[in-house]
Design a binder for these strands. Sequence first.
DNA 1: TGCCAGGTAAACA
DNA 2: TGTTTACATGGC
Length: 300
Amino acid sequence: MKNEHIISVPVPEEFRFMVNVSYLARSTNECLFEIKDDKVRKAISFGNEVFLIEVSENHDGSLLVRFIGARPTNESMLNEVIHYVQDWFDLDTDLKPFYAMAEKDLLLEQSVKAFYGLRILGIPDLFEALCWGILGQQINLTYAYTLKRRLVEAFGTSIEREGNRYWIFPPPEDIAKLTVEDLSVLKMTVKKCEYLIGVAQLMAEGSLSKELLRNSGDFKAAEKMLVKIRGIGPWTANYVLMRCLRFPNAFPIADVGLHNAIKQVLGTDRKPTIEEILELSAPWTDWEAYATFYLWRILY
DNA sequence: TGCCAGGTAAACA
DNA sequence: TGTTTACATGGC
């Protein structure tokens, strides 16, 4: 392995670091990474190891990953970290076909122009993705961030570096042990408490994992597996398949943010119906996830 | 102030 | 199978 603190990670042509940082910076209440001077810091854990990485832009547009404090002591661990960053920023997806389609699309043309180089920022940790989806159900995003912060600060772990605290999302094993009362003091609905604990138990016992979803067969099978779980409906399932499993055709069609974005782009006085969205999204085949993400972006 | 919020399960027809 | 309602709290 390279005996350095800094590693350069190549990026595809259709990538703009700052557009992605702008997305990451959408909430000042984010608790799982920190943005300062156009650099993103995040604590990540692999097994027993915890690293604090700082991702920034190289002069040639590629990514620089710097370790603050401990760094991987072997090559396979280092590769895991690099892979994590590639997954987080979705560096492996070729956006050319998406842009070719979107440039001619009534709903997408302006957002792909305005946010060229934006990738779907991932939530690689399945449990975190599921919790974030559940927390975000039927409440405004600002409050969802507050609930996530309370959950993380109550049950997560943290490391301290250079005077700052960096939090790591709690593992399912820890949430699986909690009672509804433990969670409801955070001011989420009793149902959400039950959903989070239920999902945590499934993951802790091994009957739900990223691998199982990936190996379920195809998108529909993975969606079916998720929707069977109490608290996970079509919206949450597709949200997670989009942000964590990275299915390009994941499509949270019932999403109210998507509806508002479409309303805004079309300049209509009402939100579109599901039937109207199905028509408007017909050209998006196998790019529904990216189309949704770009439309969300115009709202912030 | 009242409506809305990155929905879902359960009840009901 | 399709429609309605409770959930619950905060943001704006």
